[in-house]
Design a binder for these strands. Sequence first.
DNA 1: GTCAATTCACATGAAAGAGACCACGGTCTAGTG
DNA 2: CTAGACCGTGGTCTCTTTCATGTGAATTGACGA
Length: 407
Amino acid sequence: MEILMTDEPIGSYFEKFINKDSIFVDKKYLQSTYTPTTILHRDEQIKAIADILAPVLKLERPSNLFVYGKTGTGKTVTVHYTTNEISKVAQKYNKPVKVCYLNCKLKKIADTEYRLIAHISRMFGKAIPPTGLPTDEVYNIFYKAIDSTRQIILLVLDEIDQLIKKAGDEILYNLTRINEQLTNAQVCLIGISNDLLFIDNIDPRIKSSLSEEELVFPPYNAIQIQEILLSRAKKAFKPGVVAQGVIEKCAAYAAREHGDARRALDLLRVAGEIADREGSGKILISHIDKAERKIERDRVLDIVSTYPRQFQLVLYAIMMLRKSQREPLYTGEIYEVYKGLCKRVSVSPLTQRRVSDILGELDMLGLINAKVISKGRYGRTREISLSVPDSTIPKIEGILESALHLS
DNA sequence: GTCAATTCACATGAAAGAGACCACGGTCTAGTG
DNA sequence: CTAGACCGTGGTCTCTTTCATGTGAATTGACGA
């Protein structure tokens, strides 16, 4: 959030804002929710998905499909696109094909068995309370809801690895066997996963029925990302506002991060916003650097201010300890400082077991670097260091201190 | 010097509990005709 | 007689605790050269 630095009246600021011409034509083309009309560098995959799913148009149940690939390799967008096309055609020929897309990562929507089934049922117009019903009851409602008419349902489960990690693989077992319970309707599962190893850790029976077909999305290379960026930038920005080398730099950043196109698009969009706000009529390379820092800072600050108090306490303990002591830090030390901190703010401390998990989660979030090491005779522990840029540390401290009512 | 056993300081897993939230069905109450 | 208020029961969900088991290499100490 940039702060208004001048002392002119706020009204005229807004007026300026509305009159100021932005370098954007339409930002939506750079947002990750946008599905482009043509997808670059994914022809093979589109063709493969189309081949696999085509039988739905004859009302035959296609094989279940499992899609792998790292983040930002276009899995979601490609599946979206293909299933959209299918439902368009199906509509044209009046075939009862329905596509259900669900992102399992979204909290409070589809991160447990109950919620997943409830959410799908709601898509079919059944009202299901957010909690309170037995799970098999919800299944019954679900069966009734979809089995009432003859139809084929393409159930797309995005980030399915998250769901399994949190809720176990029983859901998948139930889902893969769902067709046995149905007389009219048929369900085809399309699983999308970021985690390439995930399928190896589930029950082999489920594995074989879920991944009747598999499809791997390779990362984009830098050139491909450039082309993608270019095609989106053409629509999103006014002509000529993107300086030489900007696209290339964005692509290079993203290619470094295993070819994550989403990241590249975010970077470009934020760079555009910054350029806009600075009143510079062009996006320069320096804006990309600023954008990268801003994205990271916003992400970190968001986590720090929204996560539960116990997480904040652990993080604050790490930051305190870091001042008096050289990194790396170890779990035991942090726990001691944490306990002291709890006493100070009169919060009952958690067990070390729990704190250990919290440290693991902070690591996953990328706020700290935690590596399990063995110090031989002196035990096994996590070696921990803070992994946020130094420039944001004072801000984090500020947020934590006010959130925890420390002085 | 070499080798296996020991040992530390946690990590990691599994299970179960606490407390918040919620639906459902039954009972009670007050208002209505 | 009926709509709504008010329980009790039984369910989910998240965060935790409890108990149990695992683990990797520095250290130790026995052994043989």
